[in-house]
Write a protein that binds this DNA or RNA. Structure first.
Lengths: 196, 196
DNA sequence: GCGTTACCGTAACGTACGCTACGGTACGGG
DNA sequence: CCCGTACCGTAGCGTACGTTACGGTAACGC
């Protein structure tokens, strides 16, 4: 035996660096050298922690999912009734804080990368479906009288609005500012309060 | 004087090849060599037609905008009343035909590329704002009684839904199939038929 | 038909990439 | 205290990229 390292910590730091580079330089700027520089180490250490670049990407994608999931959990927990929980979850997912816009840029980067990478595509599909499921459960709780199809359709609509706002606000935060995003979400949520 | 070439035709063929490569291989696969191979020529010819890679990208981005704009014009022209015109424009923008899904993939690719390229970012902003303006005018025509803020908010909501559906359907066409997209759009359009 | 000139294919340059092999280094076990 | 081993920095490999320089080639004016 010899030196022991904290593998999980290294993985987290490296995937955080991956994320940071992705948000700042975009997909073309995401290189092993850039990640190593951001993490304050060398490419050798990066490739001793992850087998190859794709493994690093996969881990960073999981990190993004865990982070958004945790924030959604927190938003969901603070609300009292189901409608407010739904609104809180969706608002934090689309809120135009700088942190969230960074997440949106990273999300777009992974989306584009997934178009040419089946592994990332599977991950992206899986994670997005989990978000749809989360929203669907909240919609069902808010409107237990609705038919399942109605619940699912509303959930996918809400997710589409949120992700659309995120993608568009990435490059045009003026047109899609905080008030506009909030208004768009509330207008979509208005269906929950109407009949039948 | 000597040989004369059809510059515009070459530009169009090359940007079409650019688009084709972008849709098939994604952003990382978009190289000058790939474009030249797809266009049936050499990289020398590509760089005699366009100054550099970015000029080619810009031209391909304009081509995408012209193509979507032309399809929107056609959809708008066939409809009789403003509400149907709006629905036709939005439906064709989100319709999950293979051709449209290809456009969506290219759109995502350019979106991701624009995150690190100020020139592409400006173009993207400009083109998206034109689409918002088009939708806004249609909303205003459909509901002349609404206040300008209400018109604008509805327009941005509709655009967000359309682009969100497009982005999500890129990687998960099963969850966001034709019926789901149509239902999501019609539900958002329902506010046009309601009061006030 | 012939010279001139615009055009473009060929080849290669420099660079940066992902990745690997190797050697130094520091820590844990005896 | 020192041996052994896990760790990781260094250096460089092969490749593919964007870009450029140059020479061949085909068309137009005369």
């Amino acid at each position: 035996m010899a030196r022991r390292r904290d593998l999980a910590d290294q993985q987290q730091r490296l995937s955080a660096a991956t994320w940071s580079v992705l948000a700042e330089r975009g997909l073309p700027g995401l290189t092993l050298r850039a990640v190593a520089e951001r993490a304050g180490c060398t490419t050798g250490m990066v490739l001793h922690t992850f087998a190859d670049k794709q493994a690093l990407l996969v881990h960073a994608r999981e990190l993004l999912h865990r982070r958004t999931g945790r924030r959604a959990d927190a938003a969901q927990a603070t609300a009292a009734d189901p409608v407010e929980a739904l609104r809180a979850v969706l608002l934090q997912a689309a809120s135009p804080t700088e942190e969230k816009r960074e997440e949106a840029r990273v999300w777009v980067g992974f989306l584009a990368a997934a178009l040419a990478d089946p592994v990332l595509a599977d991950l992206h599909r899986d994670y997005n479906r989990r978000f749809v499921t989360r929203v669907r459960e909240l919609v069902r709780a808010a409107r237990p009288d609705w038919r399942p199809v109605q619940v699912t359709d509303t959930a996918t609509s809400l997710v589409a609005v949120v992700e659309g706002l995120n993608a568009l606000a990435c490059l045009d935060p003026e047109t899609y500012d905080e008030r506009t995003q909030q208004t768009a979400l509330d207008a979509t949520l208005a269906r929950l309060r109407a009949e039948p």
